[in-house]
Design a protein around this nucleic acid. Structure first.
Length: 438
DNA sequence: TCCCAGCAATACATTTTAGG
DNA sequence: CCTAAAATGTATTGCTGGGA
């Protein structure tokens, strides 16, 4: 019983995002009327109906609903459920679709609105441009010269940049509170996820890294982690955590590490103990972020997937059907691929040259070949440039070293596959991998 | 049958916070 | 300003489906 409640609650939270309260109440009434056992069932039935109609349409015949949910709802509430669904589709699509992203105000001319106390404590958070130092500071000696392996997808990065720009425009303030950005990002991602799952069947793989959304007890933790991996999180240096110094404090997150956003930290004193014996109640760090030139450029580039939402319109009979999407087509445009290679990768010195080499090789028969190449080249590079870290890494046992190689090398390729630069043989698990344009 | 890429549960660790 | 519980973060190990 408890478990069942939890599940319904989970769905409830999810659906509040897409359905008005009115519709949720409607679902509850329908359950109470005895037609269905749970809200979940109503929703499942609705999706089944959609699915059958869609299939029927593809086969060129008229769809037969196994059970007419819309008729039930019409009788009870006097309006057409499908009609409503169409509205939600249009609403969601409007949010997700992709116009060209432009800033209405320039970041340089706008400052965050701060209280007096906060202003006193204003501390600038450096944007780390020194490529190697950054990765090393953030992730220790195991990520030197590489984009962090948990930044394993580019699509969430693109979405996050878009959300930030939208927010800056809406609030007419160039500096956005990081926590607020994360919230909006998650809302956007859920809407994105909702549309793709319901409309574009072929694209389900793309969103497999998005946090799962229903019936998952750890969902909130997962999505929190998802947000800070891609959007950002302030990491405080232990020794300094109670002091209002900026030393050793930095921001992680794909957006920041790839140079797409800049950040500043504002410190609020509450209590704590400084070196000089002064005591505070606590210290709260508020991080404000803004888009960089690079981020603006990236967000503004054409994206086939986002553009796709612009093209999808309702059919003449006002139904939302599964639209055709070429599953073999890349979800990133050529401009975006070029941007990644030319403007983002140079921040990661080893990965940059490694990817260049991968492209010049052009084909790998199996994933093992990539690992092999990576191990050879990375160790060589590390030995030359960072002998101490080389010692540390090779001093580990074989298992640890091979895990290191596996994670690092394969994620480099998975990013290239997502971007559409490389293709992994459809249906295969271990490759071959080859360049798309060859 | 074996193996391993890609997850994901779980145990363990650290940080935050509430309360006095 | 301290303690301890609660929240949150991290690391390791384990699992599994399907290709070799």
């Amino acid at each position: 019983m408890v478990e069942k409640n939890d599940q319904i609650e989970g769905n409830g939270r999810l659906f509040e995002l897409f359905l008005e309260k009115e519709v949720w109440t409607m679902l509850e009434k329908l359950v109470r009327s005895g037609t269905y056992d749970s809200e979940k069932e109503v929703i499942i039935q609705a999706i089944k109906n959609l699915h059958e109609r869609t299939k029927a349409r593809e086969n060129g015949s008229k769809g037969e609903m196994s059970e007419s949910l819309s008729t039930d709802l019409k009788q009870i509430y006097g309006f057409d459920f499908e009609e409503r669904k169409k509205l939600y589709w249009n609403e969601n699509k409007k949010i997700v679709r992709s116009p060209r992203y432009l800033l209405k105000i320039l970041p340089e001319f706008s400052l965050p609105h701060l209280t007096e106390v906060e202003q006193e404590q204003d501390v600038k958070l450096e944007v780390f441009d020194e490529k190697l130092a950054t990765q090393r500071q953030l992730y220790g000696s195991e990520s030197i010269g590489l984009n962090w392996y948990f930044n394993n997808r580019i699509l969430p990065v693109k979405l996050a940049a878009i959300v930030l720009i939208q927010k800056i425009n809406k609030e007419e303030n160039a500096w956005i509170e990081l926590d607020e950005l994360k919230k909006d990002f998650l809302t956007y991602v859920k809407q994105f996820d909702f549309i793709i799952r319901n409309v574009i069947d072929e694209l389900k793989d793309i969103i497999s890294t998005f946090p799962a959304s229903s019936g998952d007890k750890n969902f909130e933790r997962k999505e929190g982690r998802f947000a800070h991996t891609f959007v950002g999180k302030l990491v405080k240096k232990k020794e300094n955590k109670l002091y209002d110094t900026s030393d050793g404090h930095y921001l992680t997150g794909a957006l920041f590490e790839m140079g797409l956003i800049k950040a500043k930290r504002v410190v609020k004193k509450r209590w704590g103990k400084t070196m000089t014996g002064k005591s505070y109640k606590n210290i709260t760090n508020i991080v404000y972020v803004s888009i960089t030139e690079l981020g603006l450029e990236f967000a503004g580039l054409n994206n086939p997937l986002l553009d796709f939402f612009d093209k999808v319109e309702l059919a003449e009979d006002n139904q939302v059907y599964t639209y055709e999407w070429d599953n073999d087509a890349p979800i990133f445009s050529h401009e975006e691929q070029k941007f990644y290679l030319d403007k983002i990768l140079p921040k990661f010195e080893f990965e940059h040259s490694f990817v260049d080499e991968m492209i010049s090789i052009g084909r790998f028969e199996k994933s093992g070949d990539i690992k092999e190449l990576f191990e050879r080249q990375y160790l060589e590079w590390l030995k030359l440039n960072y002998p101490q870290d080389y010692q540390e890494l090779t001093g580990k046992d074989d298992r640890k070293l091979s895990d290191f190689v596996r994670m690092r090398s394969l994620v480099i390729m998975s990013r290239l596959v997502e971007l559409g630069i490389f293709v992994k043989e459809p249906g295969s698990k271990f490759g071959p991998y080859y360049l798309r344009d060859k």
